[in-house]
Protein backbone atom coordinates (compact mmCIF):
# COMPACT_ATOMS: atom_id res chain seq x y z
CA UNK A 1 0.00 0.00 0.00
CA UNK A 2 2.91 2.35 0.74
CA UNK A 3 4.28 1.69 -2.73
CA UNK A 4 0.82 2.47 -4.13
CA UNK A 5 0.70 5.79 -2.31
CA UNK A 6 4.18 6.63 -3.53
CA UNK A 7 3.36 5.74 -7.14
CA UNK A 8 0.05 7.60 -7.17
CA UNK A 9 1.61 10.57 -5.37
CA UNK A 10 4.40 10.87 -7.92
CA UNK A 11 1.96 10.48 -10.83
CA UNK A 12 -0.39 13.06 -9.32
CA UNK A 13 2.40 15.60 -8.80
CA UNK A 14 3.79 15.07 -12.32
CA UNK A 15 0.40 15.39 -14.07
CA UNK A 16 -0.57 18.37 -11.92
CA UNK A 17 2.76 20.04 -12.67
CA UNK A 18 2.24 19.49 -16.40
CA UNK A 19 -1.28 20.89 -16.17
CA UNK A 20 -0.07 23.99 -14.34
CA UNK A 21 2.71 24.44 -16.90
CA UNK A 22 0.19 24.18 -19.77
CA UNK A 23 -2.13 26.65 -18.06
CA UNK A 24 0.74 29.04 -17.42
CA UNK A 25 2.03 28.83 -20.97
CA UNK A 26 -1.51 29.24 -22.35
CA UNK A 27 -2.27 32.34 -20.32
CA UNK A 28 1.18 33.82 -20.95
CA UNK A 29 0.80 33.41 -24.70
CA UNK A 30 -2.56 35.19 -24.82
CA UNK A 31 -5.15 32.74 -23.56
CA UNK A 32 -8.40 34.33 -22.48
CA UNK A 33 -10.59 32.65 -19.85
CA UNK A 34 -13.77 34.45 -20.95
CA UNK A 35 -13.34 33.39 -24.56
CA UNK A 36 -12.66 29.82 -23.51
CA UNK A 37 -15.76 29.78 -21.31
CA UNK A 38 -17.96 31.03 -24.15
CA UNK A 39 -16.75 28.27 -26.42
CA UNK A 40 -17.14 25.65 -23.67
CA UNK A 41 -20.63 26.91 -22.81
CA UNK A 42 -21.68 26.74 -26.42
CA UNK A 43 -20.36 23.25 -26.71
CA UNK A 44 -21.21 21.71 -23.32
CA UNK A 45 -24.19 23.88 -22.26
CA UNK A 46 -22.61 24.67 -18.93
CA UNK A 47 -24.88 27.63 -18.07
CA UNK A 48 -28.06 25.68 -18.89
CA UNK A 49 -27.00 22.73 -16.75
CA UNK A 50 -26.07 25.05 -13.89
CA UNK A 51 -29.45 26.81 -14.03
CA UNK A 52 -31.26 23.47 -14.04
CA UNK A 53 -29.39 22.28 -10.96
CA UNK A 54 -29.97 25.61 -9.20
CA UNK A 55 -33.71 25.37 -9.78
CA UNK A 56 -33.79 21.82 -8.59
CA UNK A 57 -32.02 22.55 -5.29
CA UNK A 58 -34.01 25.73 -4.58
CA UNK A 59 -37.37 23.91 -4.45
CA UNK A 60 -37.73 21.26 -1.65
CA UNK A 61 -40.67 19.72 -3.44
CA UNK A 62 -38.28 18.45 -6.09
CA UNK A 63 -36.45 16.38 -3.43
CA UNK A 64 -39.73 14.87 -2.24
CA UNK A 65 -40.69 14.00 -5.79
CA UNK A 66 -37.31 12.46 -6.35
CA UNK A 67 -37.54 10.35 -3.17
CA UNK A 68 -41.05 9.21 -4.07
CA UNK A 69 -39.84 8.17 -7.47
CA UNK A 70 -37.17 5.87 -5.99
CA UNK A 71 -37.96 2.14 -6.17
CA UNK A 72 -37.47 1.47 -2.39
Amino acid sequence: MRKGWKFVGILFVVVLFLGVVFLGVGFLTGGDAERIFQVADASLSITDSFNNYQEFFEDPQNFENLLQGLPF
Binding site: L11, V15, L18, G19, F22, V25, G26, G30, D32, A33
Partner: peptide
Protein backbone atom coordinates in the same frame (compact mmCIF):
# COMPACT_ATOMS: atom_id res chain seq x y z
CA UNK B 1 -6.24 30.21 -30.80
CA UNK B 2 -3.29 28.06 -29.74
CA UNK B 3 -3.06 29.74 -26.32
CA UNK B 4 -6.67 28.76 -25.56
CA UNK B 5 -5.93 25.15 -26.54
CA UNK B 6 -3.00 25.16 -24.12
CA UNK B 7 -5.18 26.49 -21.31
CA UNK B 8 -7.86 23.87 -21.92
CA UNK B 9 -5.28 21.09 -22.08
CA UNK B 10 -3.79 22.34 -18.79
CA UNK B 11 -7.21 22.33 -17.14
CA UNK B 12 -7.82 18.83 -18.46
CA UNK B 13 -4.53 17.58 -17.01
CA UNK B 14 -5.28 19.15 -13.61
CA UNK B 15 -8.67 17.44 -13.60
CA UNK B 16 -7.11 14.11 -14.55
CA UNK B 17 -4.65 14.45 -11.68
CA UNK B 18 -7.47 15.12 -9.24
CA UNK B 19 -9.49 12.19 -10.60
CA UNK B 20 -6.51 9.89 -10.11
CA UNK B 21 -6.01 11.01 -6.53
Amino acid sequence: VFADIMVVLGASLVLFALALL
